[in-house]
């Protein structure tokens, strides 16, 4: 297996993390979180990939044909759903917060007023 997908996953993870740490706007920060999440998808899909294998759908070709691992695809699909829920919730929280504070800069928003 090639090292390329692993490096891509690591790069997405690192660049997303960097963006989150330095972010000055919550919507940007949530975007960075999604970038990081894509890193895990690349990692998972590359773990199940096999050269020369088809999609794991056996409707039009006989069982036994080489196919990529369907388990990781199911995992990624599940996580995309969960990730969408979390992103939607985060954006809703950010929207409500903007209504009350008028800013979305993490430096200015501190719970407990310290």
């Amino acid at each position: 297996m090639s090292a390329l997908p692993w490096s891509v996953a690591l790069w997405l993870f690192a660049i997303g993390f960097y963006g989150m740490i330095t972010s000055r706007h919550y919507v940007h920060l949530i975007g960075c979180l999604s970038v990081m999440q894509s890193g895990t998808y690349v990692l998972l899909l590359s773990a199940g990939f096999r050269w020369g294998a088809g999609p794991p759908v056996f409707a039009d070709h006989p069982p036994g044909t080489p196919a990529v691992d369907p388990v990781v695809q199911a995992l990624v699909l599940t996580d995309i759903v969960v990730g969408a829920a979390v992103t939607a919730l985060l954006l809703a929280l950010a929207l409500q917060l903007h209504k009350r504070r008028g800013t979305l800069d993490p430096e200015e928003l501190r719970p407990m007023r310290r």
Binding site: A9, F13, F17, M20, Y26, L29, I30, L33, M36, Q37, G39, T40, L43, L44, A47, V71, V72, L75, D79, V82, V86, L89, L90, L93, A94, Q96, L97, R100, L109, R110, P111, M112, R113
Partner: peptide
């Protein structure tokens, strides 16, 4: 303040979930 606390909570814990998924991917 509840929203601010919840945002911090969500962001840090989502990061944790991602690490967990990556770890599961590596094991698998």
């Amino acid at each position: 303040s509840a929203l601010e606390g919840a945002l911090n909570f969500t962001v840090t814990n989502s990061l944790g979930s991602m690490m967990m998924l990556a770890g599961i991917g590596l094991l698998y």
